[in-house]
Amino acid sequence: HHGSGALAALHADGPHAGLPVTRSDARVLIFNDWEERKRSEPWLRLDMSDKAIFRRYPHLR
């Protein structure tokens, strides 16, 4: 199991509170979210491209 239990660094406060600090933090969040959702949506594709990251977390651009 590759990303399970990996912890992402999140901004503690300010405008980005609760959001990932780096792209690799964002990838951890996206992976964990996908892993949760694919139980009920097995067709869901995992997209951890930069484009997917920016779409979801525009502050990382």
Rank of each mutant, 00 (worst) to 15 (best):
H11W: 13
N32D: 10
A52F: 07
H59T: 09
P42C: 08
S49M: 02
A8S: 05
A6N: 10
E36S: 11
L60F: 03
L29E: 03
G5Y: 07
P15Y: 05
E35I: 15
G5K: 13
L7P: 09
T22D: 05
A8E: 04
L29M: 07
H2T: 10
R23N: 07
E36K: 11
R61C: 11
R23M: 15
N32T: 08
R37E: 02
F31A: 04
A9K: 14
A17P: 03
H59K: 00
V21Y: 04
M48F: 07
R27K: 09
L7G: 11
H11G: 04
R27Q: 07
R55Q: 14
A9F: 14
F31D: 15
P20V: 01
M48Y: 06
L46A: 02
V21A: 14
P20T: 01
G3R: 12
F31I: 06
D33T: 05
G14P: 05
P20C: 04
A6R: 14
M48N: 03
R55N: 13
A6E: 08
L19C: 09
D25C: 07
R56D: 05
H2I: 13
D25K: 15
V28N: 05
P20Q: 00
A26W: 14
R39L: 14
G18P: 02
T22L: 03
Y57M: 00
H1Q: 11
H2C: 15
H16D: 08
F31N: 02
I30C: 03
L60K: 00
H1K: 12
E35D: 15
E36L: 12
E36P: 01
A52H: 07
S4A: 10
S24N: 12
D47H: 02
A26Q: 00
A9D: 08
S40Q: 13
P42Y: 04
R55P: 02
H16F: 14
L10F: 05
M48S: 03
K51V: 14
G14K: 03
R56E: 13
D50W: 15
P42G: 05
K38Q: 09
A52R: 03
G14A: 04
L60T: 00
G5T: 13
L44Q: 07
P58N: 02
Y57R: 00
S24I: 08
H11I: 07
K38M: 07
P20S: 01
F54N: 12
A52Q: 06
K38V: 14
T22M: 03
E36W: 07
A17F: 08
G3K: 13
A9W: 08
R45P: 12
A17E: 08
R23L: 15
V21Q: 07
R45G: 08
R45I: 14
G18I: 03
A6S: 11
L46R: 00
A52E: 15
V21L: 14
H59L: 00
R56M: 09
A26K: 00
T22Q: 05
F31G: 01
K51G: 08
A17D: 04
A6Y: 12
K38E: 02
E41Y: 07
H16S: 06
A6C: 15
R23G: 04
A9N: 14
P58M: 02
E36D: 09
L44D: 03
G14N: 04
H11D: 03
A6I: 13
A9H: 14
D50G: 02
F31H: 05
G18K: 05
K38T: 08
L44F: 09
D33I: 12
S24K: 13
P42I: 04
L10K: 05
S4Y: 12
Y57P: 13
W43P: 03
L46S: 01
L60W: 00
D47G: 02
Y57K: 00
R27M: 10
T22S: 09
R27A: 07
P15E: 06
R56H: 14
I53G: 05
F54L: 11
R55H: 12
A9G: 10
D47R: 02
L10M: 06
V21S: 09
D33K: 04
S40M: 09
L19D: 11
R27H: 04
H1P: 11
N32G: 06
R56C: 07
R55W: 07
P42F: 04
A12W: 07
A6F: 11
G5H: 12
L7R: 13
Y57A: 00
G3N: 12
E41G: 02
S24D: 12
R61P: 07
P58L: 01
G3D: 09
I30D: 00
A8T: 05
V28P: 00
A52T: 15
L7W: 07
F54S: 07
R23A: 10
A12K: 12
N32M: 13
P58H: 02
F54Q: 05
G14T: 03
G18Y: 04
R39C: 13
R23P: 14
G5S: 08
K51R: 09
H11F: 08
L29A: 05
H11Y: 11
S24M: 13
S49Q: 02
A8R: 04
V28L: 13
S49R: 04
V28R: 11
K51H: 09
M48P: 08
V21N: 04
A52D: 08
E36F: 09
T22E: 04
H2W: 12
A12R: 11
M48Q: 05
H1M: 10
H11A: 04
N32R: 13
R37Q: 14
A26V: 01
D13W: 10
F54E: 12
W43C: 13
K51Q: 11
R39W: 10
P15Q: 06
I53R: 01
L44K: 04
G3H: 12
L29S: 02
I53M: 04
G5D: 08
D47N: 13
Y57L: 03
G14M: 04
D33S: 06
G14E: 03
S4V: 13
L19M: 06
L7S: 14
A12E: 10
S49F: 02
R27N: 02
I30P: 01
F54Y: 10
L19S: 02
R39K: 13
D50R: 05
A52Y: 09
D47I: 03
R55L: 14
S24H: 14
P15G: 03
Y57F: 14
L60S: 00
P20L: 02
S4C: 15
L19I: 02
R39P: 09
G3M: 14
R39N: 10
K38D: 02
Y57H: 00
P58V: 03
L60D: 00
W43R: 09
M48D: 05
R37V: 03
E36G: 06
R56N: 06
P15C: 07
K51N: 10
L19N: 04
W43Q: 10
H16Y: 15
N32P: 00
P20R: 01
G5Q: 15
H2E: 09
D33A: 09
V21K: 10
F54C: 08
R61V: 08
D25T: 00
S40N: 15
A8K: 15
P42Q: 05
W34F: 07
D47S: 02
P58I: 02
A52V: 07
L7H: 11
P42L: 03
A8W: 03
I30M: 08
D25V: 15
S4P: 11
L46G: 01
G5N: 10
G14D: 03
L44Y: 09
L7Q: 12
H16P: 03
L19F: 04
W34L: 01
V28Q: 08
H2V: 11
R37P: 00
H16M: 09
A12Y: 07
R45V: 14
D13M: 07
R39T: 10
P58W: 01
R61H: 06
I30S: 00
R39G: 09
H2K: 12
A6D: 09
W34N: 00
P20N: 15
F54T: 08
M48A: 04
W43D: 13
N32I: 12
H59M: 00
P58E: 02
L44H: 06
F54W: 06
H59R: 00
D47E: 04
R55G: 10
V28T: 08
